[in-house]
Design a protein around this nucleic acid. Structure first.
Length: 422
RNA sequence: GGAGGGGUCGCAUAGAGGCCUAGUGCGGGCGCCUGCUAAGCGCUUAUCCCUGUUAUGGGGAUCGUGGGUUCGAAUCCCACCCCCUCCGCCA
């Protein structure tokens, strides 16, 4: 949620933000609704003050003048009418405000689409092969570790089954990434609900604009989490945190469910884009003045995974048109996949500034005292599991069709190679 | 799922139409007292909104949530949510 003060005092900032993102917001309408709403509130408050006075007097005397009671009855019904006006104005205003994304950071490159993203750095060399490297879906099927047909049989397309060493490899990847962030990067591990209520997804700003992409349980009005970002944001909804407790850093492994409605027909082969995937997510609650610095550290934490796995990667800074709804500044981390010869987005690290905390009412009390302030939230994958598996399979594949397990994972897998029939 | 009980200020509790503009205790803050500490004493102690000015201003809202009754609701009525106890079911 953007700051209503921007509507009131700096609509120019929002207009500029809209231009940078290539969107248009109904700012003038919002300004008008806000003005009408405030004057309605003033009117309501004045009437209530009057009624409170009179009622208090009536309470003190045994003599109850009928005409005063009549008058207050009229005031009461006037208040009711104004209240419903106010409610309607607030709803209309909200529906505009909820549609306005976060304001891009001044440092984000300006551009309409992903072609304007900027490569910040590239680390590692693509491995060279003495043979034609194959895509992961061929490798996975041949080794008998990814079973696409069973996924379709059990569910529908874009679901899959991991078998044998494939499943073990995934478990090792998850466990190792969690340990890395907990032990070396100072995050606290969380085990979270995989279904969350409406308030929670509203707070993380997946509602309303992401609604079509989430699986929803009608009976209990719960949403399957599209990312751990949603429940973690909700952890401190409507709470005031002591400044001395900040920053809070969390990491959690959850499945993520997405309908992928907007990607119909894209990436239909393999496990790159599926309805259910696992992810290790990093998340921070920080003081506003430190969020830029924390974003840089967050990216480093994600990159560390690539480095240790010895998989080439690059970091992109997203341009304004490619930024997510809640993000003001984002970096994507991409791993190189030799088989498909493409860069795979394995992490998107974002500084959401006070956008989500405003929406979720997450504040902190300054040590120096004074009013509570909205804190800043950041999130980033650390990393998306299926795409890491893709990168491992495609970059560690051997001429004989086997796949070597990255060294760091071997203590967890208990094997150093996956070969056909093994 | 059934039957009971309950949700009040950070915590604990009082409150049962107007004396609640929510009391008291604890905890927190400031001060006094004081060899030090403790005790004692005094003051203070939430959030949001409107207005406004920079005054330690005025007003409104918030007693689980949302409706209703009433001149007036923490208090009465309705619905929902959550917690506890027992029963049933169950990994």
């Amino acid at each position: 949620m953007i700051d209503i003060d921007l509507i009131r005092e700096r609509p120019d900032i929002l207009r500029e933000s809209g231009e940078k993102r290539g969107q248009e917001f109904r700012i003038d309408e919002a300004i008008d609704l806000d003005r009408r709403r405030r004057s309605t509130i003033t009117e309501i408050d004045n009437l209530r003050a009057k009624r409170n006075d009179v009622s208090r007097e009536l309470g003190k005397t045994s003599d109850k003048p009928q005409e005063l009671i009549e008058e207050m009855r009229a005031v009461g019904s006037k208040i009711k009418i104004l209240e419903s006006d106010e409610k309607r104005l607030a709803e209309n205003l909200d529906s505009i405000l909820l549609d306005i994304p976060n304001v891009p950071s001044d440092t984000s490159p300006v551009g309409q689409d992903e072609s304007k993203n900027v490569v910040v750095r590239t680390i590692g060399e693509a491995p060279s092969f003495s043979f034609e490297p194959r895509p992961h879906w061929e490798i996975g099927e041949e080794l008998g570790i990814i079973d696409f047909q069973s996924g379709v049989k059990l569910s529908q397309s874009r679901f899959y089954v991991l078998k044998g060493k494939g499943a073990t490899l995934q478990r090792a990847v998850i466990s190792w990434m969690l340990d890395l962030h907990v032990k070396n990067h100072n995050y606290v591990e969380l085990y979270l609900p995989f279904m969350v209520n409406r308030e929670t997804v509203k707070g993380s700003s997946h509602l309303p604009h992401f609604e079509e992409n989430m699986y929803h349980d009608e009976e209990d009005d719960l949403f399957m989490v599209p990312t751990a970002e949603a429940p973690i944001t909700g952890l401190f909804r409507d709470e005031i945190i002591d400044e001395s407790d900040l920053p809070l850093r969390y990491v959690s492994h959850t499945p993520c469910w997405r309908r992928e409605k907007f990607s119909a027909g894209r990436d239909t082969r393999g496990i790159k884009r599926v309805h259910q995937f696992d992810k290790v997510e990093m998340y921070k609650f920080v003081k506003p003045e430190s969020s830029n610095e924390e974003l840089e550290k967050l990216v480093k934490d994600a990159e560390r995974v690539c480095e240790i796995l010895k998989i080439p990667h690059r970091v992109l800074e997203l341009c304004t048109g490619d930024l997510g709804f809640a993000a003001s500044k984002s970096y994507d981390v991409e791993m190189w996949a030799s088989g498909t010869s493409e860069w795979l987005e394995v992490s998107s690290c974002s500084n959401c500034t006070d956008f989500q905390s405003r929406r979720s009412a997450i504040r902190y009390r300054p040590e120096s005292g004074g009013r509570p302030r909205f804190l800043h939230t950041l999130n980033g994958s650390g990393l998306a599991v299926p795409r890491v598996l893709i990168a491992i399979l495609e970059n560690y594949q051997q001429e004989d069709g086997s796949v070597v397990v990255p060294e760091v994972l071997r203590p967890l897998t208990g094997f150093d190679k996956i070969s056909a029939g093994s």
